[in-house]
């Protein structure tokens, strides 16, 4: 299982877990605060392994999220492709940031994604008329350091070096 390139299924597994966390039922008051698990996992892997993770994968994950949440097909895919692209472009700078600064950067990327999605929702006449729409931004930024440490351990255990 553990060839020099690492265990191949480690990365897909983290994405599957992130997707599961995205659909797991939460109580009504907490549902709008659900962090953007899938987007955060995508950002981590695009920054850690920018040669293996591409824009195409981001797009595909977004498509899965669209299907899972009953959204318009392509709505999250567009944002995810953009997130992956920007993360790959910025990986060398952001990787060495302290965790809180990383969290801010991640917040910026997610804000861009949410803005894009909001724009699409607005065009199709489904815009949520509440500030709670931006709640995932806060929860995602708070949880980023923990997710980062967790995924770093996963990477060190199964995927070896940064590439």
């Amino acid at each position: 299982m553990s060839n020099p390139r690492g265990w191949v299924w480690a990365i897909p597994l983290t994405f599957i877990v992130a997707l599961a966390l995205t659909v797991v039922p939460l109580p009504d008051w907490a549902a709008p605060w659900r962090p953007q698990w899938l987007a955060m996992t995508l950002i981590y892997w695009s920054m850690a392994l920018p040669r293996r993770i591409g824009v195409g994968l981001g797009w595909f994950l977004g498509l899965l999220l669209d299907a899972a949440t009953g959204a318009l097909l392509g709505q999250h895919a567009l944002g995810f492709a953009l997130i992956a692209y920007l993360s790959i472009r910025m990986h060398q700078r952001v990787r060495v940031f302290p965790l809180w600064q990383q969290a801010l950067t991640v917040g910026g990327l997610l804000a861009l994604h949410l803005l894009l999605v909001l724009w699409i929702l607005g065009m199709t006449g489904r815009a949520p008329g509440t500030w709670l729409y931006w709640a995932p931004l806060v929860s995602s930024m708070i949880l980023w350091p923990w997710l980062f440490v967790l995924l770093r351990d996963v990477r060190r255990r199964w995927c070896l070096a940064l590439s």
């Binding site: 591409g54 824009v55 195409g56 797009w59 977004g62 318009l72 097909l73 392509g74 709505q75 895919a77 567009l78 492709a81 953009l82 692209y85 699409i120 199709t124």
Partner: peptide, 24 residues
Amino acid sequence: MRLALLALVSIGLMWADHRHQHLQ
């Protein structure tokens, strides 16, 4: 480059999904 292509595909998909029901 890839990003632009995928963005176009997404916009096409959304348009098709919103306007028509062919994507079932």
